[in-house]
């Protein structure tokens, strides 16, 4: 509970930052709204209707007041509540994040364990090489190469787009595979590395030797003892990695044209849609804080010695 309460001032700081940042930078939503051929008079009129001519402190007061009542405001462009816009975009982003996590765990943990088990062999070196490489190639380059190969040359996947789960599972997952692989490259690099390291550490412990001495097969030792004890650091990294995932989502969604929160953010920033930018950043930060809180709680589940 104390930890939960501690998140409130953090989110308050985030809100304040974002608000000040937007108001202190140039760029005028009114000019954007008026259109490419809008006249100076039209722009002045729009500024007035949006309340942008009020003093900054008054604008801040109004926004904070609404925020406390759970009202994120209305988009300048779509004339819709930001909450509604965000809800429309949640499914694709969550779906992308989950499939990415699934792919990552399915790939990274086994190769990490194998690398640890075959410590020092060429297999281990390959895994380690990949893990550094995965960190060094920008997400969009990976995306383009995958599209070029698997969508255009081999025609295995659609080039772009997103289908809702409601439209059927196959079309849904079919369109998610390439983006998820793209996004998971960097993540696999990270988790494979940490898995290998944690398992390696655990393999040196006495009770593992005992387990081997008892004549338990490799498979059982690795899975039941080593991996289980390596779980804490792995989970930690998945938690911190959420921020990384959010960054990756922004880029991946624009490469594959997925109508998720990442693209909403970029569009809102480029269009100076202040209420939407404020809300989306707030939501992302909230999710980040919340997930890290959950991760902390998971520790005490995985390792009863840790308590909060």
């Amino acid at each position: 509970m104390r930890r939960l309460a501690a998140t409130i001032p953090v989110l308050g700081m985030v809100a304040l930052f974002v608000f000040l940042m937007l108001r202190m930078t140039p760029g005028d939503p009114a000019a954007v709204l008026a259109g490419d051929n809008g006249t100076p008079q039209q722009i002045a009129e729009i500024r007035e209707t949006l309340g942008l001519d009020e003093p900054i402190l008054v604008q801040l007061g109004i926004w904070f007041g609404d925020l406390l009542q759970g009202d994120l405001g209305q988009s300048y462009f779509f004339k819709k509540d930001v909450t509604e816009l965000i809800l429309l975009r949640v499914e694709p982003t969550v779906a992308l994040a989950i499939t990415t996590l699934v792919i990552t765990v399915l790939v990274a943990v086994p190769i990490g364990v194998i690398a640890a088990y075959r410590h020092g062999t060429w297999l281990d070196r390959c895994v380690m090489g990949f893990s550094v490489f995965g960190f060094s190639v920008p997400v969009f380059v990976v995306g383009y190469i995958l599209i070029y190969l698997f969508a255009m040359q081999f025609k295995m996947f659609p080039v772009q787009g997103y289908k809702e789960l409601a439209d059927g599972f196959w079309p849904f997952i079919h369109r998610l595979i390439l983006p998820s692989i793209t996004l998971s490259v960097i993540y696999i690099a990270l988790i494979a590395r940490i898995t290998r390291a944690s398992v390696l550490e655990v393999l040196g412990e006495d009770y593992i030797r005992t387990a081997y001495a008892k004549g338990l097969p490799n498979r059982v030792v690795l899975l039941r003892h080593a991996l289980r004890n390596a779980a804490v650091p792995i989970v930690t990294v998945i938690g911190i990695g959420v921020a990384l995932l959010i960054s990756g989502v922004v880029v991946t969604e624009s490469v594959y044209n997925i109508p998720g929160l990442g693209r909403l953010t970029v569009d809102a920033v480029l269009g100076r849609d202040y209420p939407t930018i404020q809300a989306v950043i707030l939501v992302f930060s909230g999710v980040y804080v919340l997930i890290n809180l959950l991760i902390d709680l998971t520790y005490s589940f995985l390792d009863p010695r840790i308590r909060y």
Binding site: A151, V159, Q160
Partner: peptide
Amino acid sequence: WLSVKDHQTAVNSLIEGE
């Protein structure tokens, strides 16, 4: 009307018939 930010992606989807 679909919004596709990336022109290359749009062209690819037209070629693929999407």
